[in-house]
Every structure is written in structure tokens, then in C-alpha cells.
């Protein structure tokens, strides 16, 4: 398969950036999107040009490192996959593919398609943890948890923190990410104790870092590679409103 790639090139955080067009040919329909970019980079290196910077790690769809906004959608046209699990058969032969970095004030571009997502780490540091050691797996198994709560908590825990929700949201809101992280702990006995403080602290950090508000457009849910439901956002709102209600301040 042959493609024309329109890729965002930006030399550094302060550079203005621009789109550049590249042609790649004889790409296997079974190549992943990142493999196709690897082939492009090989070509660029052969011509003594700077290869395109992009984030990647496991290439198995579980680490949440790849972050490409392909033809107007985070992780491209396929459903419930990350860009590394997206295959070229989902594109038309000869198609022009536009590749952009995640766009959000809270995710500044480092270089080309690579953005700084440490804002997510800062939100986790604000309260996305349980303060005491809760033991190992056998200890967890000794505490009864209903199947329903366990499943819901697991759905939240499936978040890989890739930031597709922020990239897809017209407001660059981190609501789905924060909600998943709040949910996964608020639903379980070990996390419930600090649920209120956690919700307040993580939401305050999310706002401080400059993410937008949730407009309930649900584009995040549509693009989440782990298909995390917006019902977690409603739970986050409940947790927050409960925390406000019981606040002693």
C-alpha cells in the first residue's frame, strides 16, 4: 500500500511547528501504524534527515505511551485500540493521512508528535493512591467485594493514561481519566476511606493544570482505547459533591 503522510514537525517546545508531507510505498496492509512510521524514519535516516519523533513503548496496546491524532481522531480510525494496534488495512491505498500530536494546553509538545503528559502524573500525585500499605494479593482476597463493584473498579483501573480522552474532547478535559482513577479506588474498601479527600485533591489539580470542563459530549468514551464509560464521570461528580457536602471547612 502507498500513502502520503502529512505529519506535524516541531523542532522543540518553543518552535512554531509546521506540517510536512512524506511519501511511503510498499507498506504491508498488516503493518501497524507505528511500523509504518518506523519505515518512514528509516527512509529519513538514509537521506540524513531528522526522523519523526513519536512516543511508543510496549506496542501491545497496554502501556498507553503512543499518542497520535490520526485523521481527526486519537489513535486513528479503528475502535478501542491504541495507535500501535492500528493496522494499515484500515486506510485506503493512496490515502493522505494527517498525523498530529495531542493538542491541549496541559500537554505541551516536546518535539514533533511527542507531548509532555506529566500533567497526568501530577494528578495521580495529588491523590490517586491509598496512603497506607494494604498488603499483597492474599490480603486483598480476604476482604469481600461484590462482583459488581469489582468489575466497575476494574473498568476504571483499565485506564492506561494515554490521554486520548483529553485529545478527543473539544474542551481538552481530563474528566474521563480523573474519573477512572477516582472510581477504581472509591469503589473498593481499601480506597473508600480517602475517597472524599482524593476526589477534591485530584479535581483541584486537574483544574489547576489547565484542563477544560466536561461538556458531556462523550467523545472521550467513543475514543478511549479501553472503552471506559462516562458513567465514571458521573461517579466522580457524585464523589466530589458528597465531599463538598460533608466538608468541615
Amino acid at each position: 500500500m502507498n500513502f502520503t503522510l502529512k505529519i506535524w514537525r516541531q523542532d522543540g517546545p518553543k518552535d512554531k511547528g509546521r506540517f510536512e508531507k512524506y511519501k511511503v510505498s510498499d507498506i504491508s496492509a498488516d503493518a501497524s501504524f507505528l511500523e509504518m512510521l518506523d519505515i518512514l524514519n528509516e527512509q529519513l535516516v538514509d537521506k540524513f534527515q531528522t526522523p519523526v519523533e513519536f512516543d511508543h513503548d510496549c506496542r501491545e496496546g497496554i502501556c498507553g505511551t503512543c499518542s497520535l491524532y490520526i485523521n481527526g481522531r486519537p489513535h486513528g480510525p479503528d475502535e478501542a485500540v491504541t495507535a500501535c494496534q492500528l493496522h494499515m488495512r484500515h486506510f485506503k491505498d493512496g490515502e493522505t493521512i494527517t498525523v498530529e500530536p495531542w493538542r491541549a494546553t496541559a500537554f505541551p509538545v516536546i518535539k514533533d508528535l511527542m507531548v509532555d503528559r506529566s500533567a497526568f502524573d501530577k494528578i495521580i500525585q495529588a491523590g490517586g493512591y491509598v496512603s497506607v500499605n494494604t498488603g499483597s494479593a492474599p490480603d486483598a482476597n480476604s476482604i469481600p467485594v461484590t462482583k459488581k463493584d469489582a468489575d466497575l473498579a476494574f473498568e476504571g483501573a483499565a485506564c492506561i493514561g494515554c490521554g486520548a480522552c483529553v485529545a478527543a474532547c473539544k474542551n481538552a478535559s481530563a474528566s474521563l481519566f480523573v474519573a477512572a482513577k477516582i472510581s477504581q479506588m472509591a469503589l473498593l474498601p481499601q480506597g473508600k476511606v480517602e475517597a472524599k479527600e482524593r476526589a477534591e485533591a485530584m479535581i483541584a489539580k486537574m483544574d489547576e493544570l489547565g484542563f477544560g470542563n466536561c461538556s458531556n459530549t462523550y467523545a472521550c468514551e467513543a475514543e478511549c482505547p479501553k472503552e471506559i464509560s462516562v458513567s465514571h464521570i458521573a461517579r466522580m461528580n457524585r464523589e466530589f459533591l458528597n465531599a463538598k457536602k460533608d466538608s468541615e471547612k
Binding site: 493538542r103 494546553t105 462523550y218
Partner: peptide, 17 residues
């Protein structure tokens, strides 16, 4: 919300909403 986006996408908003 407008401030949170910063620079806009060239291909904008194909995600379902």
C-alpha cells in the same frame, strides 16, 4: 474550555459526539 485546547487541530473533531 477554549483556553484548555490551546492550538487547534488541523483535522478537527472526527470523534463521535
Amino acid at each position: 474550555n477554549w483556553k484548555a485546547r490551546g492550538k487547534r487541530y488541523a483535522v478537527y473533531g472526527k470523534s463521535y459526539s
